[in-house]
């Protein structure tokens, strides 16, 4: 029972990281209607920024985290401006390929700077683990911090979107870009803000992911990126609570499958569950049904 609880809690923690990444995917998809394939690599950039500041330059972890948020935000906004904005009205496939190009670019720049060897990442969270049930259940501090940050981010984001003007503008643009423009909303600015928030979240996710799984390579971000993308689709892409639920469910399924079925088949199980869910609910758990008009 205790081992089940421990797997479950670790699953929630991994799922929280997926959820934070998936939020970035889902917001960008909702507003710009594009699959940002480079999102996973922003996570990697966030991880390397912290690594450089904390391990190489000897800075404090807090400075590292803040720097990585700043670097990723600037990077995200720059990518949007240079690579995606000129293609705003182009075919979705063209944008997809550009995003893939950006993803390759980030990976290869990281490869040139840091090499292909895995770097040992020192966790930014250095508190002792929490012991429950007379020491039988031990929860690492990273796990707790991850789950807490996920909750905080979720609440903050919901408030931001529902209570602020920029948040309302984001909703309006995702609803109908043309109508939003007519209402005087700065569409380009709103999309840039979305990319900034998504990338900042990716930086946070990068730090948390590397603290929990402390090996960092230029390809660190791609698999979690894909998984988070799956989580976003799972919950209904474009829906913020959907990304949250999708991410956490995915993390739990993955960890339990690893523990009880087969560690090698865990990815296959995660993806099979996704396919099954989409067969029953073709737009994900919380996705909106789109009815076609003739």
């Amino acid at each position: 029972m205790m081992s089940f609880l421990s797997y479950f809690i670790n699953g929630v923690s991994l799922g929280s990281v997926y959820a934070i990444i998936a939020l970035g995917y889902t917001m960008v998809y909702g507003i710009a209607k594009m699959l940002n394939f480079a999102h996973g690599d922003i996570i990697m950039v966030g991880g390397f920024t912290v690594f450089t500041i904390v391990s190489t330059m000897g800075g404090s972890p807090v400075a590292g985290v803040l720097a990585s948020i700043v670097v990723c935000t600037v990077l995200g906004v720059t990518i949007e401006k240079v690579a995606y904005r000129p293609l705003r009205d182009a075919s979705p496939l063209a944008v997809l390929i550009t995003a893939i190009g950006v993803s390759y670019l980030l990976q290869n720049v990281a490869l040139l700077i840091f090499g292909s060897n895995a770097r040992q990442f020192t966790s930014v969270v250095t508190l002792p683990p929490l012991k429950l049930a007379g020491g039988e259940l031990s929860i690492s501090s990273v796990t707790i911090v991850t789950i807490l940050s996920c909750i905080v981010i979720m609440i903050a984001l919901t408030l931001f979107i529902n209570r602020t003007k920029v948040g309302q503008a984001m909703l309006a643009v995702s609803e109908d870009r043309g109508a939003a423009t007519l209402m005087g909303i700065n569409v380009n600015g709103t999309i840039a803000v979305t990319f900034a928030i998504g990338s900042a979240l990716a930086a946070v996710a990068g730090v948390l992911l590397c603290s929990a799984y402390p090996s960092l390579t230029p390809y660190t971000g791609s698999m979690p990126g894909i998984k988070a993308f799956v989580a976003a689709v799972f919950g209904g892409i474009g829906s913020i609570p959907g990304a949250m639920i999708g991410g956490i469910l995915l993390g739990i399924i993955e960890n339990l499958a690893k523990a009880y079925i087969s560690s090698q088949l865990s990815d296959a199980i995660v993806f099979s569950v996704l396919i099954l869910v989409l067969l029953v609910r073709p737009t994900g758990i919380l996705g909106r049904k789109i009815s076609e008009k003739v």
């Binding site: 690579a83 000129p86 293609l87 705003r88 009205d89 182009a90 075919s91 063209a94 390929i97 550009t98 893939i100 190009g101 950006v102 390759y104 670019l105």
Partner: peptide, 11 residues
């Protein structure tokens, strides 16, 4: 890849 897409597909 990026430059080609920008040159061929951007409006």
């Amino acid at each position: 890849l990026i430059v080609m897409m920008l040159l061929t597909s951007s409006p």
